[in-house]
Amino acid sequence: MDAETREMYRKTLGGLMRRVGAEGAGESDVVAELRELGWDELTVEEPTESVALLFEEQGAALVASRALDMVVAAALGLDDRSVGIAYPEPGPTNVTSAINDDGRLTIAGLLLGASEAAEIAVPAQAGTGVVVAIVSRGALSVVEMEGFDDAAGFTRVTGVVEARHYRLLDGAAWAVAVAAGRRALAHELVGLASHMIDRAAGYVIEREQFGRPLGTFQAVQHRLADAYTGLVAARSVLAAIEPDDVLFGSLVAKAVAGRAAIRAAHSCTQVTGAIGCTWEYELHRYLRRTHALDALLGSWRALRKAIGQQMAEDGHAARLGSAPEGPAA
């Protein structure tokens, strides 16, 4: 994608996201609008950049949508991209639903939005492998959440489904879908961090103490510079993911992005002082969303542990991406 086209898409997607953000959750169907804009074609032509742009803009505008479901469904090879996904409960295990010996499917997971979707894809442990089952939305019951980030629209769901009431998705590779989801989430975390840094930078340029802008103080400058460094690192790692190493690359990317976004949130709160600690000021909503997205599909802490374990097993560290390539001859 050339720079001009990218800018055009960024404008369009950013405009959509900002509008939805301003209207508030639930007012518009982001996924439907994306489809109208030709999203499906774009993802075929530009699978990487389209996701990067969409999720960065979604993060920056703090929009909650089911776009992630769309990406994961596509990676699962589902023709019907409107299927909802029952994401594993955040925690030490990779999947939290399972198919029991008697064939019943026990579901524990998170949905994005109350999920208008009629059908839900459920990754489930079956023996030593992970399968993806499709169940109807009605088979799930909702568990109340205490609302850490209500606006994120997560719903906790459970259910037990008899074998005859679900079907297994042929040839679905949950690991590949997870990788796609992690990349999307990493981009969204980058969008969140980027927005927080911009806002905080704007704030410290404006506000004065001791007769000068806060932004002239090194303590303030250095915290924001560190936050920005983390942001650049997250972007670079996303760019370094190579097609033949997407599983590992996506895992590292989400870990780096999650860590960077959480650190950025802390730095930005610190430099905005008491204002940053209030409900009215938007920063905390970004802080919440950062934690919520970090929790999905592997928190940075869980992922770094996985990386470390892999390293211990291999006896050496994997190199992320190969050496840079020069300009095409």
Binding site: P90, F148, F217, L287, D294, S299
Partner: peptide, 29 residues
């Protein structure tokens, strides 16, 4: 507590409050 605890409840409350410690009563800087 693990990532699930960040979605609701006491731990998440404590985590979002924590930035205030180094602001209230005089900032660390």
């Amino acid at each position: 507590a693990g990532p699930a605890a960040m979605l609701d409840g006491r731990v998440s409350r404590a985590v979002v409050y924590a930035p205030a410690y180094t602001i209230q009563g005089g900032t660390s800087a």
